[in-house]
């Protein structure tokens, strides 16, 4: 996903993508991040218990924990509400 995203949108994207175990390179490619910022985001999510580390052969994989579901649900509800309130736009 390209464009200018907030850090919370990036966290959400990573957590949704990591519902299946994913490798670091797959995550940064999918979420359009460079390795430095990608590493920072992943470290934060791992430190808070939203991502769990696993092994995929020699490599480390990341998987969303059940706690991540709470954040994902809250995020979805807040973002969908953006369309329920406000003037909206139509021709």
């Amino acid at each position: 996903m390209a464009g200018r995203r907030t850090q919370y949108e990036i966290y959400w994207e990573i957590l949704v993508y990591c519902r299946s175990p994913r490798l670091f390179t797959a995550i940064i490619n999918r979420c359009d991040l460079n390795s430095k910022t990608g590493q920072e985001y992943l470290e934060f999510l791992v430190s808070r218990g939203y991502l769990a580390l696993g092994k995929d052969g020699e490599k480390t994989s990341y998987r969303s924990t059940p706690q991540a579901a709470e954040y994902i649900a809250l995020f979805s509800s807040l973002y969908q509400k953006l369309f329920d309130s406000g003037p909206g736009f139509r021709l």
């Binding site: 907030t6 919370y8 808070r48 807040l78 509400k81 369309f83 309130s85 406000g86 003037p87």
Partner: peptide, 27 residues
């Protein structure tokens, strides 16, 4: 009209950041 409508959504997204930050950092 489009600009006004989406500016409001951008502001709404910024306002919801507080709730998201709390949710992330409470752990």
């Amino acid at each position: 009209r489009y600009s006004a409508s989406w500016d409001e959504r951008i502001d709404g997204a910024a306002r919801s950041e507080n709730a998201l930050r709390c949710a992330l950092e409470q752990r």
